[in-house]
Design a protein around this nucleic acid. Structure first.
Length: 574
DNA sequence: GCCGTTTTCGGCCCGACTGTTTTCAGTCG
């Protein structure tokens, strides 16, 4: 799919136009079109082939022609022309915190600064100070900004962000002046990766809360310290932004700071159509330039005056927008308490840290009624794949446990290796011993997409395979997903009643929410598993449920919301 | 450059913080 490439190019074009000094609405049009293309569930080349490019919101005649040229010839003349006027390297400069298009333009035009290195030298030589509106403090911030970019501040996964946020929130809660408190931003929406952490507090004494916040022991650096908004960098380089508002604005502020950006813009437009205005301070009726406060104490109240139901934060994303603002009732999406068991965990039979009995005990403590112990198969040597001889022992151990346990069922599972040729580990006779088979790829990530697609589809078509484990192989921030035809895999999975896994391990979160949203519309069903290698990992289930919610899944769409009888019946449907 | 239930022109989301000014521009979310 060329969607990402096209979006990237349009984004760059928007940025360059901004530096060039084009009107903001024109540059915004490029960014808007890029956003919509990135959120597209379909292949943009496919849309073009069907003559449906103009159906993409924000794509009009001019941008459409540019996309067509790029898809046909692999280049965009307008972009190439533009880079002759505005050097591409200025995009790196805009990326520096505190430096935006205006300053980049100024530095380029007055000092011929083209690269980040040029800028650093100009700043250190004091040349920037000769420019209007630039004094020592600005130069200092630019140099700091360059350093931050050089360090490369990475996005963290949802698990780490949750841990950091919980620690800070616990400290804030201990301040007597803090009343309501909540995470906001991408963390509250449950995104797979988080850039910085937003926290919202209700308090009548904002200054006291802010002063305490910027003096927490975790703070390495204070970026901003105001009455309603402060921003710090923690010792492990996580940016945390705190906003403090009063009771009558808390709901409106929570709504606003939760986003997404695109969701907020949609809401504001709905407000305008109804002669209202919405900001972080509340929803207001607007008549003859006068504003009257209508709502703001809670999110529900704000949505209600706009005539809308309050959507769960996980749904407030661009890719579900059409469905969200269609006026149709929002379905009841899956919750953590719907989960009745897990189907992909490891034990000491392969590379898990705990015995089957210990894993089962931990699962029972979580209120589950079943657990499939799905250890690796022999071909994955590094993970101690289970030999056939050990498998017999394992089966006996599980049978013994089941004869003793009441109201709980241990299932014999396997995480079955799909080898580089697309063959499965264990022969068909042995595969029939398992209650459940999770087939996964752990090798040959760099094969051509066709080959990877073939391996996955092969596995799906095998009569014993029930689930495809961590379907894209991504390790967030560490390893790119392997490339394959996701659409073909979805079609095969839907056809053969094979469930795609939402792997809840924070490093993976694979499938991601885009995949889930798209696959659900292809008729795919899912299983949410933690891939636990330790009893503590079972707690990661909440992250998997978050991804499922972001993909608009109901309990119906998820295999392990069923009780064990229904579960086994569904597995037989292959 | 896009878009339309006040439509084919004239709008296009809103506000805080910083650093520079002395009323504001730029950046950020």
């Amino acid at each position: 799919m060329k969607n990402k490439e096209v979006a990237e190019l349009l984004n760059r074009m928007g940025d360059l136009l901004q530096i060039k000094g084009e009107i903001v609405f024109k540059t915004r049009a490029y960014h808007k079109a890029a956003e919509n293309i990135e959120a597209l569930g379909e292949d943009i080349a496919e849309l073009e082939a069907q003559g449906r490019l103009s159906e993409i919101p924000g794509v009009g005649a001019a941008i459409q022609a540019k996309i067509q040229e790029y898809l046909a010839k692999g280049k965009m003349t307008a972009y190439e022309e533009l880079t002759k006027e505005v050097p591409e390297t200025l995009l790196d400069i805009v990326n520096i915190p505190t430096v935006g298009p205006q300053k980049a333009k100024l530095f380029y035009e007055k000092l011929n600064v083209k690269t980040m290195e040029d800028l650093r030298r100009a700043a250190e030589a004091g040349k920037l100070l000769t420019l209007p509106g630039i004094k020592e403090k600005t130069v200092e911030n630019i140099l700091k900004g360059i350093q931050i970019v050089a360090q490369g501040q990475e996005r963290m996964n949802l698990g780490k962000a949750t841990d950091v946020a919980e620690e800070i929130i616990a400290l804030l809660k201990a301040i007597p002046e803090v009343r309501r408190i909540s995470p906001a931003g991408s963390l509250r929406r449950g995104m797979e990766t988080i850039g910085d952490i937003d926290i919202l507090v209700e308090s009548g004494h904002p200054l006291k809360v802010m002063d305490a916040f910027v003096n927490f022991p975790q703070v390495k650096k204070v970026n901003a310290h105001g009455e309603t908004k402060s921003s710090i960098l923690t010792k492990d380089n996580v940016q945390v932004d705190l906003r403090v508002v009063d009771a009558k604005s808390y709901g409106a502020a929570l709504l606003y700071f939760t986003g997404s950006k695109s969701f907020n813009i949609n809401l504001r437009q709905i407000a305008i159509k109804n002669n209202m205005k919405i900001s972080e301070y509340g929803v207001f009726a607007v008549t003859n330039d006068k504003e009257k406060y209508l709502a703001g104490k809670t999110e529900e109240e704000c949505f209600a005056v706009l005539g809308l139901a309050c959507p769960p934060p996980e749904l407030r994303e661009e890719f579900g927008e059409e469905e969200l603002f269609s006026g149709k009732k929002i379905p009841k999406i899956v919750e953590l308490k719907d989960i009745q068991g897990e189907l992909h965990v490891h034990s000491t039979y392969s590379d898990g840290r705990h015995s089957i009995a210990q894993m089962v005990e931990a699962a029972r403590r979580r209120g589950y009624s079943y657990l499939a112990i799905s250890d690796h198969s022999p071909k994955l040597r590094v993970a101690g794949g289970v030999s056939v001889a050990d498998l017999k022992k394992k089966k006996k151990e599980i049978d013994n446990l089941n004869s003793r346990l009441k109201g709980f069922r241990v299932l014999l599972g396997t995480e079955l290796e799909i080898d580089t040729e697309g063959n499965l580990d264990y022969n068909d006779t042995i595969l029939k011993w398992f209650d459940i088979v999770v087939a996964s790829i752990h090798s040959g990530f760099n094969q051509p997409p066709d080959q990877l697609t073939k391996r996955l589809v092969n596995a799906i078509e095998h009569p014993c395979v029930n689930i495809i484990g961590h379907p894209t192989g991504v390790h967030l921030g560490k390893r790119e997903p392997y490339q394959f035809d996701f659409n073909k895999v979805c079609q095969a999975a839907a056809e053969h009643n094979v469930f795609l896994e939402i792997n809840a391990f924070p490093l993976r979160l694979d499938l991601n929410s885009h995949h889930v949203y798209y696959a659900r519309r292809q008729g795919v069903k899912f299983a949410i598993n933690t891939d636990a290698h330790h009893i503590d990992h079972l707690a990661y289930m909440k992250y998997g449920v978050t991804i499922a919610r972001r993909g608009w899944l109901t309990a119906e769409d998820v295999l392990n919301t069923r009780n064990v009888t229904e579960l086994l019946k569904m597995l037989k449907k292959k």
